[in-house]
Amino acid sequence: MNSETAGKSLAYEKPKLINDNKFHFCPGCNYGIIIRLIASVLEEMKLTDKTIGLVSAGCYVQTPWYMDVDFVAALHGRAPAVATGIRRVHPDAFMFCMQGDGDLGAIGMGHFMNAMMRGERWTTIFLNNACYGQTRGQMAPTTLLGMRTTTTQDGRDAEKTGYPLHVAELAATMKGVVYAARCCVNTPANYAKAKKMLKTAFQKQLDGPGMSILELLSACPSNWGLPPKEALAFLTENMIAEYPLGEYKNVEPKIDV
């Protein structure tokens, strides 16, 4: 859809924040939907003028070229550290950090853990597609057991590589976290739930201290070696089984002394 075809008869219009640059995502990737979701919630909550977004390495790194808010692109895994610096200078900005599973769960795990420990005030949007999408599908911390990737060619084996990482559950254990939830955008109903959760996560940030975290499961047909429809089915049957959807933490943002 572009601005010429958008009309009153359409149930969904492209959010104004999404510009006319063409998405580069593979067919069946959920990232386009997720970027649209973020943009629509920023608009509905009237946050666009004071928003600073962060991306680091992953397929979502191009988001600044699609969404017209201020952005900083951090080095791989470093977004929580970069966001910490920005937050000190702009305490009134609205901030979200997009991080993938390799970015947050592997190379940047130390920064993510410490940012949660400090109770940093921003919303982490954690994109879990169970693989390293941008580097062509290697094993990620979130890769399911038995799942074939380019570095687990016989399927992920717990004896060799351990177990999948559960970020929403982990985040819920941290005192500096006020909201931790997991959702996905595989159906219109789940998209609506995801939107509600993202609004809650964003509102927590506006209300007070502490990090809000929303994990989004996302299909990666290219690297899963599945056509888009089968990839969605895999997500529905296998990903959600390992990573149950729902809210894991929802508390009032306040300093606990």
Partner: peptide, 14 residues
């Protein structure tokens, strides 16, 4: 590594 990336952020913030 975090310290220099915090500098990155604060510098980017002006």
């Amino acid at each position: 590594t975090a310290a220099i990336n915090m500098v990155f952020g604060a510098a980017a913030a002006g």
